[in-house]
């Protein structure tokens, strides 16, 4: 048993952002949350995390309504990594990871040994042990995201929700980060823009458009030229199994209006 959304709706400023979406996570899977800008990916993720209350429907954790659970109880089960965390506070990387232990502590006390063990494990699992004494604000974007994932792991969750974690990273760090996420023995939901990354790392994907669920299933079944044309309004060619068995690769076809050949002269090295 894990997280599930049952017919959830949420509106902001009189506009329906998430519109009757149902999805049940499966234990241990990596679920990709896809859709164009403004389709409600981040909002659905926030509903799943209990950061926003649903206007209709319910989010269930182990069959119990999320809104009836205490915040601390949820935080010991579900961890969240945001698109790009920022802070004015001059924390070290280790102090950031330590924040993940807050749900496990009371006002004063806590199991210091358990805290230390969880922090060490989280640092080791994310390969960030060497960064522990660095100031978080001096880390690169990729390092910051790894440290945030370490912080999430220090919460010792069973569910991990990530909101476009690769947005500000270069290609290599995008791949590294999602490979790390895929290795974790957790039930993971990751909102992604990049369909190829989703096809490469997700066990299952769901696609949103204007707040509604339009498709769900294995990447090879969902990511078809017809769906991409319909939802993203671009023409694409899908190469089945190009990224591994059951993992298609997607090549976008430029609309003819853009497709003038590159200007040969401007491509010459200017010496």
């Amino acid at each position: 048993m894990t997280l599930a959304a049952r017919e959830v709706s949420w509106s902001a400023g009189g506009r329906l952002i998430v519109d009757g979406v149902s999805v049940a996570l499966r234990d241990g899977e990596t679920l990709g949350l896809l859709g164009p800008n403004g389709s409600g990916k981040s909002s659905l993720l926030r509903l799943l995390a209990g950061l926003r209350g649903t206007d209709g429907g319910a989010v269930l954790l182990d069959g119990r309504e999320l809104r009836t659970l205490r915040r601390g109880e949820v935080a010991r089960r579900v961890a969240v990594v945001e698109q790009q965390a920022s802070t004015e506070v001059d924390l070290t990387a280790e102090q950031v990871v330590r924040l993940g232990r807050i749900p496990h502590r009371g006002s004063w006390s806590g199991d210091a040994d358990a805290d230390a063990r969880a922090v060490e494990r989280a640092l080791a699992e994310t390969g960030t042990s060497a960064l522990r004494d660095r100031r978080w604000r001096t880390l690169s974007g990729g390092e910051q995201q790894r440290v945030q994932i370490a912080r999430a792991l220090a919460q010792e969750p069973r569910e991990l929700l990530l909101d476009e974690p690769t947005n500000h990273l270069d290609v290599r760090h995008q791949l590294d980060l999602l490979a790390l996420v895929g290795r974790l023995p957790l039930t993971t939901v990751v909102a992604l823009h990049d369909l190829n990354l989703a096809a490469l790392f997700c066990d299952r994907v769901i696609v949103l458009r204007a707040g509604r669920l339009v498709s769900a299933g294995r990447p090879a079944d969902v990511l078809t030229p017809a769906l991409i044309a319909d939802v993203y309004e671009v023409a694409a060619e899908v190469l089945p199994d190009a990224a591994g068995p059951g993992r298609p690769a997607i090549r976008f076809l430029a609309p003819s209006a853009y497709a003038s050949p590159p200007d040969a002269r401007s491509c010459q090295p200017s010496r």
Binding site: A75, L91, L99, G100, I102, R105
Partner: peptide
């Protein structure tokens, strides 16, 4: 001082604090 942990949790903003179990 009883809220010291919660204050730490605000470092990355209110949503981040909420996901760390802070009311």
């Amino acid at each position: 001082l009883t809220q010291a942990d919660a204050l730490d949790a605000f470092a990355f903003g209110e949503d981040a604090a909420a996901t760390l179990g802070v009311a």
